[in-house]
Every structure is written in structure tokens, then in C-alpha cells.
């Protein structure tokens, strides 16, 4: 007996929503980045579920691409956060207001 895809998609959707809310209410740039990773993970789960629904393996290949892009994004993003906190002394996103008047 198999679990229907609706349950997997509900799990993916709820995790995505938690990622969105976390990215909106947290202040630390690294923690915001972690919530972005959580959203990517939720999308990966949806991809794998759709791959099983349609009987194609293409969804799993797309998960592979999402993983590679996420790795590159994390590396560049963490380097930028490191630079900002080195220059401004904190990794709080509200401290980065140079472009604000």
C-alpha cells in the first residue's frame, strides 16, 4: 500500500511556507540563508513526487540541478555575508542600510 502523492505535496508545501515565514521574520543573514535552503529542499520533494506521479525520471534529474545551483549559491552568498560582517561588524540584515536615505 502506497502513500498518495497529496501527502508528499502537502509536506513540501508546508515546509516551503515555513521557509518563507522564517526568511521574512528572522534578522540574521545566515539564518535567512538557511530558510532559503529549506525552501529549495521543499521544492526538491515536490519534484521527486511529480517524477513518481508521471513515471519519468526527469524530476529527479532536475533535483540534481537544483542541488548544484544551491551549492554554488551558498558558496557565493556566504562569502558575501562574511564580507559584510567583516566590514560592518554584524551579520544582521537591518544593519545593511547604506542605500537607504
Amino acid at each position: 500500500m502506497r502513500v498518495a502523492p497529496e501527502y508528499y505535496l502537502s509536506l513540501a508545501g508546508l515546509m516551503f511556507v515555513i521557509g518563507v515565514v522564517g526568511a521574512l521574520i528572522r534578522r540574521n543573514a545566515i539564518v535567512i540563508f538557511m530558510f532559503v535552503e529549506l525552501m529549495l529542499n521543499a521544492v526538491n520533494l515536490a519534484f521527486v513526487t511529480f517524477a513518481r506521479m508521471w513515471g519519468h525520471v526527469d524530476g529527479q534529474v532536475l533535483v540534481f540541478f537544483v542541488l548544484v545551483v544551491a551549492a554554488a549559491e551558498v558558496v557565493v552568498g556566504l562569502a558575501i555575508i562574511l564580507l559584510i560582517s567583516r566590514n560592518r561588524g554584524s551579520s544582521d540584515v537591518d544593519d545593511v542600510n547604506l542605500l537607504r536615505w
Binding site: 498518495a4 502523492p5 502537502s10 508546508l14 506521479m53 525520471v57 529527479q60
Partner: peptide, 26 residues
């Protein structure tokens, strides 16, 4: 999200039973 997961999936599966369409990908 929950509405899409429980209602929209019938549309995505072409109106059929979504759980019946589960295929072995391997």
C-alpha cells in the same frame, strides 16, 4: 499550498485518480 496539493493535483493528473497514476520510475 494545501488547496493546490489536494485539489489541483486532479487537474494535473488529467482528471483521473492521482494515486492510481503512481508509476515505478525505475
Amino acid at each position: 499550498m494545501l488547496w493546490v496539493a489536494w485539489r489541483g493535483i486532479e487537474f494535473a493528473a488529467g482528471g483521473g485518480d492521482a494515486a492510481g497514476r503512481l508509476v515505478d520510475t525505475n
